[in-house]
Simulated assay, not measured.
Amino acid sequence: MHSKLRLAIVGLGLVGKRHAEAVALVPDVELVAVVDPNESGQDAAIGMGVPCFETIGAMLESVGPDGVILATPTLLHVEQAMTCIEHKCPVLVEKPIGVSALEAHALVQMANNRDIPLLVGHHRRHNPLIRKARQAIDDGLIGDVRAVQGTCWFYKPDHYFDAASWRKREGAGPVSVNLVHDIDLIRYLCGEVSAVQAVAAPSARGFENEDVASALLEFKNGAIGTISVSDSVVAPWSWEFTSRENPNYPPIPESCYLIGGSEGSLSVPDLRVWTHQDRQQDWWTPLSATTLTRDASDPLVNQVAHFRDVILRKAPPLVSGSEGLRTLQVIEAIQVSAQQRVRLEIQDITASALGTYRTVV
């Protein structure tokens, strides 16, 4: 019996290194191995004092960790996660869970059938401010959610793409890489998305993917949403700038989500609740704002601690494989809708593997 829960990380890029830092801060957890075929990853593993393997299979056979964190390119997620599950090893896979909803569905089914914990790295749900926002909505502070606006605008420098050529390829644009986080939070806060209609523009830098896209979201509860993403726009309105979550981004006192309800509205991440005086829903009545208080802690550290508790069967997953799959369905629908310029209704993938969307002309 080991005194600490033993975790391995696959992929020591930007995100993998942040996971390693988080593991080091969680009690009763230790990093015991890394998988990375690149020299930079191997050098980083040496600095951490852990062995580095070139393949995930070799690491699982040699080390036998209690859990694995996958921080690799999306194309590898499903295959690598399945390898972990075959070895009966719980896995936390970075977002998005896979390239397509159908392949991700096969992974989720495999994990469920074998009763192996499968978590998806939508770490923003582990941020205390998101927990506070969800509580405010659940407590009825803004009434019924009727509308939401989301903005995800920033400018990624050229060297970001040069450092990893896969970021220039089809399927690795800001819809898949960045908007997936925002869609997951909007689902978590506002409800399930039932249909989307989207548009996208090709990369102005000549890459294979889009660099700006917008979508109209229809929710099962009757709410309507709009969301826009770009990695080629200079602007302050994104989670990265406004949440103060990652110290690598300069903090800006703005918000990136506006959630409108029948009795008030909520802006996130500044957590300001706007209501009419005396709760009179009347546009002639003055509005006032209250800023909600919340705790502050690193969501990546919280996520590792949660992964520990799930592995030990002390807690159910906050973002299960099924949750990651539902978010991927919305992202995939946005991509297909933008390509075909049609409205798509999102089907329940668990009900049929024949198709996950229905085109509505």
Rank of each mutant, 00 (worst) to 15 (best):
G206K: 10
A215V: 15
I224N: 01
P157W: 07
K168H: 04
R131S: 10
E210W: 11
N127A: 12
L179P: 01
V120D: 02
K220F: 03
Q135F: 06
I183Y: 01
Q197L: 09
K220I: 03
A136I: 04
V148F: 03
R131C: 08
D182M: 08
L118G: 03
D182P: 00
K220P: 00
H122T: 00
I224P: 04
V180I: 13
F154N: 03
A172W: 09
R187M: 12
Q149Y: 05
H126A: 10
A204V: 15
A147G: 09
R134I: 02
A164L: 14
N178G: 03
A133W: 06
R125V: 12
P117S: 09
P202K: 08
A215P: 08
V177D: 04
V175I: 15
V212G: 05
G173M: 13
E210M: 14
N209Y: 06
E192R: 10
H159E: 13
Y155R: 11
A164D: 15
L185R: 01
S214I: 07
E170M: 09
L141M: 12
F207D: 13
D182E: 11
L185T: 01
K168I: 09
P117G: 04
H123R: 07
G171R: 08
D182G: 01
G222H: 06
I137R: 00
D182V: 01
A201P: 00
P174L: 09
A172P: 00
L118M: 09
E192N: 06
A201M: 13
D158R: 12
Q135I: 01
A133K: 05
G140R: 02
K156T: 03
A198E: 15
Q197E: 15
A215S: 15
E170P: 00
A147H: 14
A204E: 15
R169F: 13
L216N: 02
P157V: 03
N178E: 13
V175Y: 04
H122F: 14
H181L: 08
T151E: 14
V148Y: 00
G222I: 09
A133F: 07
H181T: 01
A164R: 13
R124S: 05
G121F: 06
Q197M: 14
L185S: 01
V196F: 06
R124A: 07
C190H: 02
E192Q: 09
P117R: 09
R205T: 07
V145R: 00
A223L: 10
F154K: 07
E208C: 06
Q135M: 10
R125W: 15
N178A: 06
A215T: 07
E208I: 12
E192M: 11
N221I: 07
P128Y: 03
A201S: 12
I224M: 14
H126W: 10
A213K: 02
Q149D: 13
V120Q: 03
K168E: 14
S194W: 11
D144V: 08
L216I: 05
N178R: 01
N178H: 12
